[in-house]
C-alpha cells in the first residue's frame, strides 16, 4: 500500500474533542463526521484536505475520549494513515480496529513541515519527504496490529478467527 499526499502538521496531545467535537457526534456516518473533522483545532482542514493527505501529529495523538468517531472522521476525510511520535491508547486500538494504520516516527515528525509532499510505503514502513528529498524510518507495526490491518480490521478478524471457530 503506497500513498502520496500533503502533510497536515499538528502538535502534541491532539485530543479527540479537537479531532471531532461531541456536538457533531450525534450521528455516526463517516461522511457526515468528516465535514467537521478538526473543526475546533484547524477549521480549514475539512474543506481543503484531499484523498491521500497525511495527518502528522506529535506525542500522545488522539488522547481523551474513546469516541471512534475520531478515527472514522479522519479516514472518511480521505486520510489513509497517521504519523505521530506516539498515540494515546484507545485511539491506537480504534484506528487499527477500523483499518486505519498508524506509524510512529519521531524523526519524521520533527523534520516534516506543514504542507510538505509525502510518499508513504506502508508495507516497507518507509516515509519519503518529496519536498525535502529525505526519507525516514518508522517503528515496525506490532504483529497483532499488522494482522488486523491485513484482515481489514477487527470485524473481519473476529469473523474469521473467532466466530468461525465456534
Amino acid at each position: 500500500m503506497k500513498y502520496e499526499g500533503r502533510a497536515w502538521k499538528f502538535g502534541d496531545d491532539v485530543d479527540t474533542d479537537m479531532i471531532i467535537a461531541a456536538r457533531y457526534c450525534n450521528v455516526s456516518d463517516g461522511a457526515a463526521l468528516a465535514k467537521h473533522v478538526f473543526a475546533d483545532g484547524r477549521p480549514e482542514f475539512a474543506s481543503s484536505v484531499s484523498a491521500g493527505d497525511v495527518v502528522v501529529g506529535g506525542r500522545n495523538f488522539g488522547c481523551g475520549s474513546s469516541r471512534e468517531h475520531a478515527p472514522i472522521a479522519i479516514r472518511a476525510a480521505g486520510v489513509p494513515l497517521i504519523i505521530a511520535k506516539s498515540f494515546a491508547r484507545i485511539f491506537y486500538r480504534n484506528a487499527f480496529n477500523i483499518g486505519l494504520p498508524l506509524l510512529e516516527s519521531a524523526e519524521a515528525v520533527d523534520d516534516i513541515r506543514d504542507g510538505d509532499r509525502l510518499a508513504v510505503d506502508l508495507a516497507a514502513g518507509r516515509i519519503e519527504n518529496l519536498t525535502r528529498g529525505k526519507s525516514y524510518s518508522t517503528r515496525p507495526i506490532p504483529p497483532f496490529m499488522e494482522q488486523l490491518i491485513r484482515q481489514g480490521g477487527l470485524v473481519e478478524y473476529i469473523r474469521k478467527e473467532k466466530l468461525a471457530a465456534r
Binding site: 484507545i90 486500538r93 480504534n94 480496529n97 477500523i98 473476529i158 473467532k162
Partner: peptide
Amino acid sequence: TGVGSTDFAAVMATGE
C-alpha cells in the same frame, strides 16, 4: 478500561 465502539462490538459478540 475504555475502548472504542468496534472493540465493544467484538466484546458483545464474543465475551472476550
